[in-house]
Nucleic acid binder design. Sequence first.
RNA 1: CGGGGCGUAGCGCAGUCCGGUAGCGCACCUGGUUUGGGACCAGGGGGCCGCAGGUUCGAAUCCUGCCGCCCCGACCA
Length: 492
Amino acid sequence: MAKGIPTRSEDYAQWYIELVKQADLAENSDVRGCMVIKPYGYSIWEKMQQALDKMFKDTGHVNAYFPLFVPKSMFEAEEKNAEGFAKECALVTHYRLKNDPDRKGKLIVDPNAKLEEELVVRPTSEAIIWSTYKKWIQSYRDLPILINQWANVVRWEMRTRLFLRTAEFLWQEGHTAHATKDEAIKETEQMLEVYAAFAEEFMALPVIKGRKSENERFPGALDTYCIEAMMQDGKALQAGTSHFLGQNFAKAFDVKFSNKEGKLEEVWGTSWGVSTRLIGALIMAHSDDDGLIIPPKLAPIHVVIVPVFRSDDEFARVSEKAEAIAKDLRKQGFSVKYDNRDTQKPGFKFAEWELKGVPVRIAIGPRDLDNGTVEVARRDTKEKQVMKMEDINTAVPALLDTIQQNIYNRALSFRTDMTTKVDSFEEFKKVLNDKGGFISAHWDGTAETEQKIKEETKATIRCIPLDAKEEAGVCIYSGKPSSKRVLFAMAY
RNA sequence: CGGGGCGUAGCGCAGUCCGGUAGCGCACCUGGUUUGGGACCAGGGGGCCGCAGGUUCGAAUCCUGCCGCCCCGACCA
């Protein structure tokens, strides 16, 4: 067990917070609700960006950048969206400070520098983007517009948690405009598939694809699709959303185009996003009481080499081998760290790199030099094996693949175990209370019932799975007829 | 916004009840011995005790005001 970190069973929430800090991913900043993402944490984000950005480009999207500030009148143009975010908006009201005449060296807000119109710090960018699209779109020939932006947004949350919910966070937001409803819906679905593929292939995180109920829908959207993941404490986490906006924003910002028949039509829209919250998901889904477990495809460091030695002479001989191994692996495209610090003992380094979740560790000492071997340890299972040096170049890449796959399989079987079908409200409450996880149950489809269940149990409908099969049943709460099961859970 | 807690070395804390001029662990620096699972010994450096005012011969400690942070709740796409 890692030093200074409680185990998951002792205190899951605290385990998470401490792990984030001790593994050097992020820390609380001097600004309330905002975090500092440290280099090691940021490099995981960079890996995610890299993979996602390629997937976006491969599906025809391009990147652009829109302003951080949104004039209040522009922000409120799409009423539902504005209303939904109103409670958590930060505002810029002044543009100048001045010296405080009463306290030397201090600054006060210059009352003469009040803005004519307040600026909203974007909680999301639909408003500014659609007001821009209006200028870009006249004809069907201007469509579709397929733009993504990597940006920060601010949502003034009352309670924050590193990565999972902070006042400012990093994300990407795609905003597309289309000539037809069908095309926009296809885009919404396509991006959901992209997110699901990213989660499963790169994060080794199995996700449920589904649609949100009316209560949970993005304000301003006609339909919200999502991917939902299961964390080790049995709580669900929304890992990404893709929204079909209909013509809501086109109406609000008067974005019309001439179709082939020369008739004016309103543009159809989508938006979709994932955020640094994914790092929280990654940690909570895979890591253990010894520290992080990072899937190889997102690990900033794939392999760490730890030397074991007594004398300077031994250190030199071990280093020579270690550098050669590192060089060969790097040639294959792997990120390799040779931890040649002579200020820390091997045992310390083992623990430290385990805390940081490096998938594979190679230890090499005098004994190995004599035998032509190394000790290879894998982070996910903590198994060690002695390996011939000449096998490293083929065995380590294979091992990384195995680890990626194993982490996924483990998360998948956990989720399967943590998904329970229930057919009565009594059973529902019992499972929720004793076991947690996803609960698959019939629901009458009304917002009222969902609200009642939430009030009584704190569980919400995470999604209506896309692959839910038609099955006649009755709502566990109201007893009214239902045609398919939905997934309930306690959620982050 | 309600309830609770906390601000003392880089981090974690004791000292506050009962006032006497600041201490422990980790980290850090130096030297030595160590090095295949979180080393050990010796020496050393580091503090507007959150801020401001008051009481007192004397305040980390008592009083007043302020600021900040954390936890629980409400809130949360």
